[in-house]
Write a protein that binds this DNA or RNA. Structure first.
Lengths: 238, 238
DNA sequence: TTTTATTGTATCAATTTGATACAATAATGC
DNA sequence: GCATTATTGTATCAAATTGATACAATAAAA
């Protein structure tokens, strides 16, 4: 096949690590291919007529049902041994057809990694025609992932940890309004360590990126916490 | 041409931003193609039988004469409009041959950006067969670069600025032994701002990554500064 | 020996962070 | 009602870090 006859770019793909927060722990979306026992990150190929970033966004919007999504690129993986035609062959076989050995998807791929932090509850995980299921898995209890996808997850985790200090990444992990405790839990889940309650509160308030709203009465026998939302205008200016 | 007949991966390339330090300002290596007036970053393609990183290293070692090099990946550029067959055609024409319109190097490319900080004085800039010259240009006075290479430089600068806080990046910009003033000048050039002399010294010494050596007698009529080198063992452990 | 420019470090103030204390308060039980 | 309980919001003081300044040490020249 001539390159120009292919709708997609060859030798390049994208893979995404989509983080969600249950209130207690971080999870990521992992899909499982039919009849293969193979687990993988959501990913895909780039059409010749679209931007790399748009290709990745489109793919993730389809997998999650979200209408908008913010993706951050964190690393591109290009080791020689990361490509392996076996999984793709097994996936094709699992779907009931044989793939010719010179098919372009069996060639070597360099993949661009993106991460996103999204609202766990707004997502409708949607399998594609190749996959059996797509589900949330705790980052501390992932199934074995195919190829180098575990390395990709590891790099994504490192990236969100270092980015957390710079940008208020947590913006999309929580509902519109949230309590200070919930926000702290997000930070604790990402950094994987406890934070001092009072210091966290002082620090985050001094950043002046939160708007305080009404109190939240949960029925608990104690002082009700305020609800907050992110001041998106101020965050833009950072 | 069938993909497998091509020695190189298609649709993927790398480009590098190689920083050097003159003692006063940051420069980068820029090459100029013969008879075209086109200026570009050093870059290249990835052979099917080599790692992405190795391909980039090999390319830069050839352009600089260095035997070893450390590259940091900072971003991958995949916009649809970044690819443009005209420069490549002009480059081919400048060399005296016509390129067929369906040649793989005229196709769309997604390029992986790497930066490196190296010792200005140890480099022998070496043009390749396509380029007229390869030279150092001050980052404040670059020639107009082709395609999106100016955006690539901008991203590389952002990357070294944020990485400077995390890793002691300056390690390779200076000779083996250097004075505290020289080290501070490096930081000032990268961050593009003056740093407080005493605070810088206290902070960098407290990091415990420097080894103090003999004094440097320059003949100047004042107290001679100590020479320092990086303690590479301790830096590894960070 | 004095002078000059620069280096290395000490010192004290200002700011930020860590640790603790405590008042405010929303339900509950009596 | 009124004490009880758990949690929140903030104040307070100590500890650590950073900023600003001062000053002694010193290499060479006058």
């Amino acid at each position: 096949m001539l390159p120009s006859e292919n709708k997609y770019l060859t030798n390049v793909s994208f893979d995404t690590v989509i983080f969600g927060f249950t209130g207690e722990e971080l999870k990521i979306l992992v899909l499982e291919y039919q009849n293969t026992g193979l687990f993988a990150l959501p990913g895909g190929y780039i059409r010749r007529d679209e931007n790399l970033l748009d290709a990745a966004k489109k793919g993730i919007m389809r997998r999650t049902g979200l209408k908008t999504i913010h993706l951050e690129q964190f690393h591109t993986f290009g080791k020689l041994n990361r490509s392996n035609p076996e999984p793709s062959k097994r996936i094709a076989k699992g779907l009931g057809y044989e793939m010719p050995d010179d098919h372009w998807v069996l060639d070597r791929f360099i993949t661009v990694g993106y991460y996103s932090l999204i609202n766990y509850n707004q997502v409708r995980p949607t399998p594609n025609k190749f996959s059996d299921s797509i589900n949330w898995y705790s980052i501390n209890n992932l199934p074995p992932l195919m190829m180098d996808h575990e390395e990709i997850v590891k790099k994504a985790l490192e990236a969100i940890r270092t980015d957390l200090g710079k940008k208020p990444i947590g913006t999309n992990l929580l509902p519109e309004k949230f309590t200070m405790k919930e926000l702290r839990k997000v930070y604790e889940a990402i950094l994987d360590k406890k934070l001092r309650r009072t210091t966290f509160q002082r620090k985050i308030l001094s950043m002046d990126i939160l708007i305080r709203h009404e109190k939240l009465y949960t029925g608990a026998a104690n002082k009700a916490p305020y609800l907050y939302s992110f001041n998106k205008e101020k965050i833009e200016k950072l």
